[in-house]
Simulated assay, not measured.
Amino acid sequence: MSTLAAIVIGLVALLHIWFLVLEMFLWDKPAGLKAFGQTLEKARASKVLAANQGLYNGFLAAGLLWGLSLGAAGTHIQVFFLLCVLIAGLYGAATASRKILFVQALPAALGLLLLALA
C-alpha cells in the first residue's frame, strides 16, 4: 500500500469520525444545524435517527482504521469499507444532497483508486 493511499484512507476515516460527532452529539447544536441546513425543530424531531446514523459512520471509520492498522494484510478490509462509504455516498447524493457526492463518495473513490494503483 502506498503512503498516499494510507493518508487518503486515514482522512476518510477522520471524516467519518467527524460525521459521528456531528450526528450523535452536535445534531441540534449550531454546528450540526449549519452543517445539515436544518431548523432546530427538525433537528429535535430527528435527533434519535441522526444519532443512529452517526453510530454507523463510526463503524465505517473503525473499519477503515482497522484495515490501516494491519498494513498490507488489511487491504481487503480497507477495500470493503471504502466500498461501503462509496455506496453510502452515492445513495446519499441521489436521495439527500448532491454535496454528499463530493464530501463522502469522491474521497472513498480516490482511496480505492490509490489502493488499486499501489
Rank of each mutant, 00 (worst) to 15 (best):
G63F: 00
A62C: 08
K47D: 10
F80Q: 05
L11T: 04
S97I: 05
A108L: 09
A116G: 03
K34L: 13
Q53T: 14
I9P: 01
V12F: 08
E23L: 15
L82G: 03
A6V: 09
A35K: 06
A13R: 00
Y91T: 10
A109D: 03
R98A: 15
L112D: 00
L82T: 00
G32F: 01
T75P: 01
A31W: 13
K34A: 15
T3S: 15
F80S: 09
L68A: 02
H76S: 14
A96I: 15
F59C: 12
F19R: 10
F36C: 04
G58N: 07
T95C: 04
N57D: 13
A109F: 12
L101W: 10
G74W: 12
L26Q: 14
G54L: 02
W27N: 01
C84G: 02
T3M: 11
V12G: 03
G71Q: 13
A6F: 11
M24C: 15
F36G: 02
L101G: 07
A35L: 04
L55S: 06
I7N: 09
P107L: 02
Q104K: 11
T95N: 14
A94D: 11
Q104V: 15
A94F: 04
A88L: 15
L49C: 07
L15G: 10
L55W: 12
H16W: 14
L64T: 10
G111Q: 08
I7R: 15
L65Q: 05
A45T: 12
L20N: 05
L22D: 06
A31N: 09
G63K: 03
L113P: 02
A43V: 03
I7H: 12
H16D: 11
L65R: 06
L68E: 08
V21Q: 00
L64R: 08
G37Q: 13
F102Y: 12
A35F: 04
P30E: 15
A73N: 14
F36Y: 15
V8G: 01
F80K: 06
S97E: 13
L83T: 05
F25E: 13
L60T: 00
I100F: 13
I87T: 13
A93R: 07
A116I: 03
L49F: 13
L14Y: 06
K34Q: 10
T75C: 02
A93H: 12
G111H: 02
Q38V: 09
L40I: 11
L90C: 13
A6K: 15
A105F: 12
K42P: 05
V12D: 01
